[in-house]
Protein backbone atom coordinates (compact mmCIF):
# COMPACT_ATOMS: atom_id res chain seq x y z
CA UNK A 1 0.00 0.00 0.00
CA UNK A 2 2.67 2.46 0.93
CA UNK A 3 4.56 1.75 -2.31
CA UNK A 4 1.35 2.38 -4.16
CA UNK A 5 0.83 5.67 -2.34
CA UNK A 6 4.42 6.58 -2.95
CA UNK A 7 4.14 5.86 -6.67
CA UNK A 8 0.91 7.81 -6.76
CA UNK A 9 2.29 10.92 -5.11
CA UNK A 10 5.58 11.00 -6.95
CA UNK A 11 3.53 10.59 -10.12
CA UNK A 12 1.48 13.56 -9.03
CA UNK A 13 4.64 15.64 -8.59
CA UNK A 14 6.03 14.72 -12.01
CA UNK A 15 2.52 15.33 -13.30
CA UNK A 16 2.87 18.90 -12.07
CA UNK A 17 5.86 19.35 -14.36
CA UNK A 18 3.93 17.88 -17.30
CA UNK A 19 1.01 20.11 -16.43
CA UNK A 20 3.14 23.25 -16.57
CA UNK A 21 4.69 22.13 -19.82
CA UNK A 22 1.28 21.31 -21.26
CA UNK A 23 0.07 24.74 -20.19
CA UNK A 24 2.87 26.29 -22.23
CA UNK A 25 1.92 24.16 -25.25
CA UNK A 26 -1.74 25.12 -24.88
CA UNK A 27 -0.77 28.78 -24.72
CA UNK A 28 0.91 28.64 -28.11
CA UNK A 29 -1.77 26.41 -29.56
CA UNK A 30 -4.51 28.82 -28.53
CA UNK A 31 -2.70 31.79 -29.98
CA UNK A 32 -1.48 30.32 -33.24
CA UNK A 33 -2.99 26.83 -33.62
CA UNK A 34 0.46 25.34 -33.72
CA UNK A 35 2.09 22.65 -31.62
CA UNK A 36 5.50 23.87 -30.58
CA UNK A 37 7.86 20.94 -30.95
CA UNK A 38 10.68 23.12 -29.64
CA UNK A 39 8.94 23.85 -26.33
CA UNK A 40 10.99 21.25 -24.48
CA UNK A 41 14.33 22.43 -25.85
CA UNK A 42 13.45 26.05 -25.08
CA UNK A 43 12.73 25.03 -21.48
CA UNK A 44 15.97 23.07 -21.35
CA UNK A 45 17.91 26.08 -22.59
CA UNK A 46 16.27 28.25 -19.91
CA UNK A 47 17.10 25.72 -17.22
CA UNK A 48 20.76 25.84 -18.21
CA UNK A 49 20.65 29.62 -17.96
CA UNK A 50 19.27 29.28 -14.43
CA UNK A 51 21.99 26.77 -13.56
CA UNK A 52 24.60 29.16 -14.91
CA UNK A 53 23.29 32.04 -12.81
CA UNK A 54 23.26 29.96 -9.65
CA UNK A 55 26.68 28.62 -10.45
CA UNK A 56 27.97 32.18 -10.52
CA UNK A 57 26.52 32.86 -7.09
CA UNK A 58 23.00 34.15 -7.61
CA UNK A 59 20.48 32.98 -4.97
CA UNK A 60 17.90 30.48 -6.19
CA UNK A 61 14.84 32.66 -6.43
CA UNK A 62 16.74 35.53 -8.05
CA UNK A 63 18.01 33.15 -10.70
CA UNK A 64 14.52 31.71 -11.03
CA UNK A 65 12.91 35.10 -11.57
CA UNK A 66 15.57 36.30 -13.96
CA UNK A 67 15.28 33.10 -15.98
CA UNK A 68 11.53 33.46 -16.28
CA UNK A 69 11.89 37.08 -17.43
CA UNK A 70 14.65 36.26 -19.93
CA UNK A 71 12.65 33.31 -21.26
CA UNK A 72 9.68 35.58 -21.76
CA UNK A 73 11.81 38.00 -23.77
CA UNK A 74 13.32 35.15 -25.78
CA UNK A 75 9.86 33.78 -26.54
CA UNK A 76 8.69 37.16 -27.82
CA UNK A 77 11.79 37.52 -29.99
CA UNK A 78 11.46 34.00 -31.39
CA UNK A 79 7.89 34.67 -32.40
CA UNK A 80 8.68 37.97 -34.07
CA UNK A 81 11.84 36.86 -35.84
CA UNK A 82 11.43 33.17 -36.63
CA UNK A 83 7.77 32.22 -36.42
CA UNK A 84 6.07 35.34 -37.81
CA UNK A 85 7.42 35.07 -41.36
CA UNK A 86 5.75 31.66 -41.63
CA UNK A 87 2.31 32.83 -40.54
CA UNK A 88 0.80 31.95 -43.90
CA UNK A 89 3.06 29.00 -44.75
CA UNK A 90 1.75 25.43 -44.81
CA UNK A 91 1.90 23.34 -41.64
CA UNK A 92 4.83 21.34 -42.95
CA UNK A 93 7.03 24.43 -43.20
CA UNK A 94 6.16 25.40 -39.66
CA UNK A 95 6.88 21.93 -38.29
CA UNK A 96 10.22 21.96 -40.08
CA UNK A 97 11.05 25.34 -38.55
CA UNK A 98 10.22 23.99 -35.08
CA UNK A 99 12.45 20.98 -35.66
CA UNK A 100 15.16 23.38 -36.77
CA UNK A 101 14.79 25.17 -33.44
CA UNK A 102 15.03 21.83 -31.59
CA UNK A 103 18.37 21.20 -33.28
CA UNK A 104 19.67 24.69 -32.59
CA UNK A 105 18.80 24.83 -28.89
CA UNK A 106 20.00 21.32 -28.26
CA UNK A 107 23.34 21.74 -29.92
CA UNK A 108 24.05 25.24 -28.68
CA UNK A 109 23.56 24.04 -25.11
CA UNK A 110 25.71 21.01 -25.80
CA UNK A 111 28.38 23.27 -27.20
CA UNK A 112 28.34 25.76 -24.34
CA UNK A 113 27.77 23.47 -21.38
CA UNK A 114 28.82 20.03 -22.59
CA UNK A 115 27.01 16.75 -22.27
CA UNK A 116 27.93 15.60 -18.79
CA UNK A 117 24.97 15.41 -16.47
CA UNK A 118 24.71 18.22 -13.92
CA UNK A 119 22.98 18.51 -10.56
CA UNK A 120 20.28 21.14 -10.31
CA UNK A 121 19.24 22.47 -6.91
CA UNK A 122 15.75 22.31 -5.60
CA UNK A 123 14.52 25.48 -3.88
CA UNK A 124 12.71 23.42 -1.30
CA UNK A 125 14.26 22.14 1.96
CA UNK A 126 15.86 18.72 2.33
CA UNK A 127 13.43 17.64 5.00
CA UNK A 128 9.88 16.83 3.97
CA UNK A 129 7.28 19.34 5.01
CA UNK A 130 5.07 18.69 8.04
CA UNK A 131 6.52 15.24 8.57
CA UNK A 132 4.99 14.15 5.29
CA UNK A 133 6.39 10.67 4.71
CA UNK A 134 4.80 10.15 1.34
CA UNK A 135 6.29 13.08 -0.53
CA UNK A 136 9.60 14.88 -0.45
CA UNK A 137 9.43 18.61 -0.04
CA UNK A 138 10.43 19.01 -3.68
CA UNK A 139 7.54 16.85 -4.78
CA UNK A 140 5.02 18.81 -2.74
CA UNK A 141 6.75 22.02 -3.81
CA UNK A 142 6.31 21.18 -7.50
CA UNK A 143 2.60 20.65 -6.96
CA UNK A 144 2.31 23.98 -5.14
CA UNK A 145 4.21 25.72 -7.93
CA UNK A 146 1.96 24.09 -10.52
CA UNK A 147 -1.13 25.50 -8.89
CA UNK A 148 0.53 28.88 -8.42
CA UNK A 149 1.36 29.02 -12.12
CA UNK A 150 -2.15 27.94 -13.01
CA UNK A 151 -3.65 30.56 -10.70
CA UNK A 152 -1.44 33.29 -12.15
CA UNK A 153 -2.22 32.30 -15.71
CA UNK A 154 -5.92 32.06 -14.94
CA UNK A 155 -5.94 35.42 -13.16
CA UNK A 156 -4.03 37.05 -15.97
CA UNK A 157 -6.37 35.86 -18.68
CA UNK A 158 -9.52 36.30 -16.65
CA UNK A 159 -9.00 39.63 -14.98
CA UNK A 160 -6.55 41.80 -16.90
CA UNK A 161 -7.37 43.78 -20.07
CA UNK A 162 -4.23 42.43 -21.72
CA UNK A 163 -5.24 38.85 -20.94
CA UNK A 164 -8.69 39.52 -22.36
CA UNK A 165 -7.15 41.05 -25.48
CA UNK A 166 -4.96 37.97 -25.93
CA UNK A 167 -7.96 35.68 -25.70
CA UNK A 168 -9.82 37.85 -28.18
CA UNK A 169 -6.90 37.91 -30.60
CA UNK A 170 -6.65 34.12 -30.49
CA UNK A 171 -10.34 33.71 -31.09
CA UNK A 172 -11.14 36.29 -33.72
CA UNK A 173 -8.15 38.23 -35.07
CA UNK A 174 -10.18 40.30 -37.52
CA UNK A 175 -12.62 41.60 -34.92
CA UNK A 176 -9.76 42.14 -32.49
CA UNK A 177 -8.07 44.50 -34.92
CA UNK A 178 -11.32 46.38 -35.30
CA UNK A 179 -11.37 47.18 -31.58
CA UNK A 180 -7.77 48.36 -31.75
CA UNK A 181 -5.91 45.29 -30.49
CA UNK A 182 -2.46 44.83 -32.02
CA UNK A 183 -2.96 41.16 -32.83
CA UNK A 184 0.62 40.55 -33.91
CA UNK A 185 1.91 41.61 -30.53
CA UNK A 186 -0.64 39.45 -28.76
CA UNK A 187 0.74 36.38 -30.53
CA UNK A 188 4.27 37.39 -29.58
CA UNK A 189 3.18 37.85 -25.96
CA UNK A 190 1.60 34.41 -26.10
CA UNK A 191 4.93 32.97 -27.15
CA UNK A 192 6.67 34.91 -24.42
CA UNK A 193 4.31 33.57 -21.78
CA UNK A 194 4.67 30.06 -23.11
CA UNK A 195 8.45 30.30 -22.97
CA UNK A 196 8.32 31.71 -19.44
CA UNK A 197 5.96 28.99 -18.24
CA UNK A 198 8.03 26.34 -19.98
CA UNK A 199 11.15 27.55 -18.20
CA UNK A 200 9.42 26.96 -14.86
CA UNK A 201 8.67 23.39 -15.94
CA UNK A 202 12.33 22.92 -16.79
CA UNK A 203 13.54 24.27 -13.43
CA UNK A 204 11.04 22.11 -11.53
CA UNK A 205 11.99 18.98 -13.45
CA UNK A 206 15.76 19.40 -13.34
CA UNK A 207 16.30 18.43 -9.67
CA UNK A 208 14.53 15.12 -10.42
CA UNK A 209 15.74 14.20 -13.89
CA UNK A 210 19.07 16.08 -13.65
CA UNK A 211 20.35 18.58 -16.11
CA UNK A 212 21.50 17.41 -19.52
CA UNK A 213 20.84 18.64 -23.05
CA UNK A 214 18.51 15.73 -23.81
CA UNK A 215 16.54 15.93 -20.57
CA UNK A 216 13.45 17.39 -22.17
CA UNK A 217 12.62 15.12 -25.09
CA UNK A 218 10.83 12.55 -22.95
CA UNK A 219 9.35 15.22 -20.66
CA UNK A 220 7.99 16.99 -23.71
CA UNK A 221 6.36 13.76 -24.83
CA UNK A 222 4.54 13.51 -21.51
CA UNK A 223 3.67 17.19 -21.86
CA UNK A 224 2.17 16.48 -25.28
CA UNK A 225 0.27 13.55 -23.84
CA UNK A 226 -1.07 15.79 -21.06
CA UNK A 227 -2.10 18.54 -23.47
CA UNK A 228 -3.74 16.13 -25.89
CA UNK A 229 -5.50 14.26 -23.09
CA UNK A 230 -6.90 17.42 -21.55
CA UNK A 231 -7.85 18.99 -24.86
CA UNK A 232 -5.13 21.02 -26.49
CA UNK A 233 -7.12 24.26 -26.39
CA UNK A 234 -8.03 24.01 -22.72
CA UNK A 235 -5.66 25.22 -19.97
CA UNK A 236 -7.62 23.49 -17.19
CA UNK A 237 -7.70 20.30 -19.17
CA UNK A 238 -3.98 20.53 -19.77
CA UNK A 239 -3.27 20.75 -16.05
CA UNK A 240 -5.65 17.91 -15.23
CA UNK A 241 -4.10 15.95 -18.10
CA UNK A 242 -0.65 16.57 -16.65
CA UNK A 243 -1.53 15.08 -13.28
CA UNK A 244 -3.35 12.14 -14.87
CA UNK A 245 -0.41 11.38 -17.15
CA UNK A 246 2.07 11.66 -14.28
CA UNK A 247 0.14 9.25 -12.07
CA UNK A 248 -0.60 6.85 -14.93
CA UNK A 249 3.02 6.82 -15.99
CA UNK A 250 4.09 5.76 -12.50
CA UNK A 251 1.34 3.26 -11.83
CA UNK A 252 1.38 1.64 -15.27
CA UNK A 253 5.17 1.63 -15.09
CA UNK A 254 5.27 0.07 -11.64
CA UNK A 255 2.45 -2.46 -11.92
CA UNK A 256 1.79 -3.23 -15.56
CA UNK A 257 4.57 -2.87 -18.08
CA UNK A 258 7.66 -2.06 -16.04
CA UNK A 259 9.40 1.28 -15.74
CA UNK A 260 11.54 0.45 -18.77
CA UNK A 261 8.90 1.36 -21.30
CA UNK A 262 7.04 4.12 -19.48
CA UNK A 263 7.32 6.36 -22.53
CA UNK A 264 5.01 4.09 -24.45
CA UNK A 265 2.30 5.14 -21.99
CA UNK A 266 2.60 8.61 -23.46
CA UNK A 267 2.65 7.20 -26.99
CA UNK A 268 -0.51 5.19 -26.38
CA UNK A 269 -2.26 8.16 -24.77
CA UNK A 270 -1.35 10.51 -27.61
CA UNK A 271 -2.38 8.20 -30.43
CA UNK A 272 -5.39 6.83 -28.58
CA UNK A 273 -6.81 10.23 -27.70
CA UNK A 274 -6.05 11.79 -31.08
CA UNK A 275 -7.77 8.97 -32.90
CA UNK A 276 -10.71 8.37 -30.61
CA UNK A 277 -11.47 11.74 -29.06
CA UNK A 278 -9.41 14.48 -30.70
CA UNK A 279 -10.93 17.18 -28.52
CA UNK A 280 -9.51 15.45 -25.44
CA UNK A 281 -11.26 14.66 -22.17
CA UNK A 282 -12.07 18.26 -21.39
CA UNK A 283 -12.18 19.71 -24.89
CA UNK A 284 -14.42 22.72 -24.98
CA UNK A 285 -17.61 22.65 -26.97
CA UNK A 286 -18.62 26.16 -27.93
CA UNK A 287 -22.33 26.74 -28.06
CA UNK A 288 -23.23 28.85 -31.03
CA UNK A 289 -26.57 30.04 -32.19
CA UNK A 290 -26.96 31.79 -35.51
Amino acid sequence: MSTFAHQFFSGLAMGGVYAILALALVMIYQATHLVNFAQGEMAMFATYMAWNMMDSGLPYWAAFGLTVVLSFAAGVIIERVIVRPFAKAPVLSMVIVFIGMVFIFNSVVGWIYGYEIKDFRSPFPEKAWFGNTLMSSHESGVIVVTFLVLALVYGFFRFTPLGLAMRAAAQNPASSRLVGIKVGWMLALGWGLAAAIGSIAGMMAAPVVYLDPNMMSSLLLYGFAAAVLGGIDNPWGAVAGGFIVGVMQNLVGAYLVGTQIQLSVALVIIIGVLVMKPSGLFGRVIVTRV
Binding site: A165, A168, L178, G180
Partner: peptide, 26 residues
Amino acid sequence: IAHVPDGRGTFGALTVAENLRLGAYT
Protein backbone atom coordinates in the same frame (compact mmCIF):
# COMPACT_ATOMS: atom_id res chain seq x y z
CA ILE B 1 -13.51 54.80 -36.40
CA ALA B 2 -15.51 51.84 -35.09
CA HIS B 3 -16.47 49.13 -37.54
CA VAL B 4 -19.36 46.70 -37.09
CA PRO B 5 -18.37 44.12 -39.70
CA ASP B 6 -20.65 41.92 -41.76
CA GLY B 7 -21.50 38.83 -39.78
CA ARG B 8 -21.26 41.04 -36.67
CA GLY B 9 -17.85 39.79 -35.56
CA THR B 10 -18.80 39.19 -31.95
CA PHE B 11 -16.47 37.10 -29.81
CA GLY B 12 -18.75 34.11 -29.43
CA ALA B 13 -16.82 32.31 -26.69
CA LEU B 14 -16.50 35.43 -24.54
CA THR B 15 -19.22 36.89 -22.35
CA VAL B 16 -21.25 39.95 -23.25
CA ALA B 17 -19.34 41.83 -20.55
CA GLU B 18 -16.00 40.84 -22.06
CA ASN B 19 -17.15 41.80 -25.54
CA LEU B 20 -18.07 45.25 -24.28
CA ARG B 21 -14.82 45.61 -22.35
CA LEU B 22 -12.93 44.74 -25.53
CA GLY B 23 -14.77 47.53 -27.29
CA ALA B 24 -13.20 49.97 -24.86
CA TYR B 25 -9.81 48.26 -25.07
CA THR B 26 -7.99 51.34 -26.35
